[in-house]
């Protein structure tokens, strides 16, 4: 475990994540997250679908796959235009922070090629490489973000006891590790077999909910 991974995965790393709920705001408003148990199930569903996909994209980027090809693969795995825009916005914000933290020509090139932002997991993977981290590190940071974002947001949205939220994340730990390992294995396959080997797991309610959330006149979180 490297300190650079702790920094990259830190919720206080200034990369814009605090303004996003990972779909939790919609799920809370629609009565699908009401307590710690439903939060855990929400996180679990997100982890094994979009979390797995994002972690594999990140690991592939760290392993040296072409970031622009991965950016296209992320587009294909994100049918919701709202979620594509969110991912690119977060990617742009992460790139800014990563360039300050770990200056690298690879990050500069990615920023120049995608000035409006590359997909966040792709940026994270390139940043992890710049920080000297491994593909598994990048997968772990990304998989953890898939659950920590809704868990943190739910503390604010439901006034959920923060200790319960932390306990949810702790109990999900082994699953986060397993998803990160599966993502890293898929990323390794993608390097030899092509990007079709990357997972494409989806969660329909996250897509539908994101589109609906974007149409709300008032909301606390950007997504």
């Amino acid at each position: 475990m490297s300190a650079a991974l702790l920094l990259l995965a830190d919720g206080r790393f200034p990369a814009g994540g605090h303004a996003h709920s990972g779909g939790a705001e919609t799920a809370v408003a629609e009565g699908r997250i009401t307590d710690a148990a439903t939060l855990a199930e929400f996180c679990r569903g997100r982890l094994h679908t979009t979390g797995l996909v994002a972690a594999a994209l990140a690991a592939a980027a760290t392993a040296g796959a072409d970031p622009l090809a991965l950016d296209g693969a992320a587009d294909a795995r994100t049918p919701s235009p709202v979620l594509r825009a969110v991912s690119r916005r977060l990617g742009r914000q992460l790139l800014r922070a990563a360039r300050a933290a770990w200056p690298s020509p690879a990050l500069d090139r990615l920023g120049a090629a995608r000035p409006r932002g590359a997909h966040q997991p792709v940026v994270l993977g390139v940043a992890a490489r710049a920080a000297g981290l491994t593909p598994l590190d990048a997968a772990r940071a990304t998989a953890y973000e898939a659950v920590s974002s809704p868990a943190t947001a739910t503390v604010r949205l439901l006034a959920l006891d923060p200790f319960e939220s932390a306990a949810v994340l702790a109990r999900l730990g082994p699953e986060v590790d397993a998803v990160a390992e599966a993502a890293e294995a898929a990323a390794r396959r993608a390097l030899s077999e092509g990007l079709d080997a990357l997972p494409a797991a989806s969660a329909p309610l996250l897509d539908i909910g994101a589109e609906r959330h974007a149409a709300w006149p008032t909301r606390l979180f950007t997504s």
């Binding site: 569903g45 094994h48 679908t49 296209g72 294909a76 795995r77 494409a200 797991a201 989806s202 329909p204």
Partner: peptide, 22 residues
Amino acid sequence: TVLDQELAAGRGAAPGWDGPAG
């Protein structure tokens, strides 16, 4: 490739498939 997505559901699918995000 402009769309690549997989839906997995039912007994034996990844945990959370029938949950509030699934």
